[in-house]
Design a protein around this nucleic acid. Sequence first.
DNA 1: TTATGTGCAAACTTTTTGCTGAAAG
DNA 2: CTTTCAGCAAAAAGTTTGCACATAA
Lengths: 163, 163
Amino acid sequence: MTLKVQAAESRIEQLCIEHGLKMTGQRRVIARVLSEADDHPDVEELYRRAAVLDSRISVATVYRTVRLLEEKGILERRDFGGGRARYEATEHGRHHYHLIDVDNGKVIEFEDPEHEAFMMKVADRLGFEFVSMRLELFGKKRQPANASSGKTTPRSRRKGDQT
Amino acid sequence: MTLKVQAAESRIEQLCIEHGLKMTGQRRVIARVLSEADDHPDVEELYRRAAVLDSRISVATVYRTVRLLEEKGILERRDFGGGRARYEATEHGRHHYHLIDVDNGKVIEFEDPEHEAFMMKVADRLGFEFVSMRLELFGKKRQPANASSGKTTPRSRRKGDQT
DNA sequence: TTATGTGCAAACTTTTTGCTGAAAG
DNA sequence: CTTTCAGCAAAAAGTTTGCACATAA
């Protein structure tokens, strides 16, 4: 009987294995960071989090891994405005979508259960096999009938967006 | 009576004027290029088209203009994968969406009349005022039951995508 | 006439890559 | 043992910006 000494494989690591990827220490760490993320980190942020678990990791590796996993369909790239790509694990069946607050870049997730099925039908009707989709909604927070409109509202594309 | 010698203002130029923008020669040209585009040009492409109409224009100006028009809500930025931002005029009411062929980057447009109304409701329910949305569907062309599977299929992100 | 826009080239930011040593299978 | 991966630093790609001149209103 083999004794399991290491922490169980993370969900993303599982998927990597299923896709036949060679599991290096670095990939395992990045996979774990991704599995534990419940937000939409960009490469910098993934790198930061990975470096905490294992400092002998480089940004280049994070870039290469993230690209690889995207090609395998394990990760999805998002663009919420802000100049850098952000990533989240692909969820099959239980898709969620994003509402981005244009004033501060904050991201709110929402669901629409019928949506994915509908999009698969659209793809099918156009002669395509569904691979993935993105739905991004941009909005401004509605003020709850409170007046002070002289706020310093950042308007242009900013670099450090949240969530 | 004033004689109109110049070509009529382009649709985008109209919008610029309505937004109180100073109309320089360059902006007029870019506005026209945008008005006449029925695809999703990136900055390079806009620059190329604009340079045909007026060669004393620079890429920097195209970047600045495109950014300005996006901030004014006249243009919308898209990311179809391929590393550069692509632009199209905002359409109010008659939104269309994009299906991207993951194998060759080609973009097909499709409509869904109920969709925008539904998204406005979602935004509203979450306490936001609808600003804009993006919907991108990625798919692989379904082979019409014809077998030859040994094709040289480009897989990674390529730089010169179509449409 | 004044505020704003433009061209140019340099700077910046994000992402990719060539090369050499390392490690997975 | 062979093939693929990682680190590093250099380069590429896309986009922004400072400055001096030009131009719209």
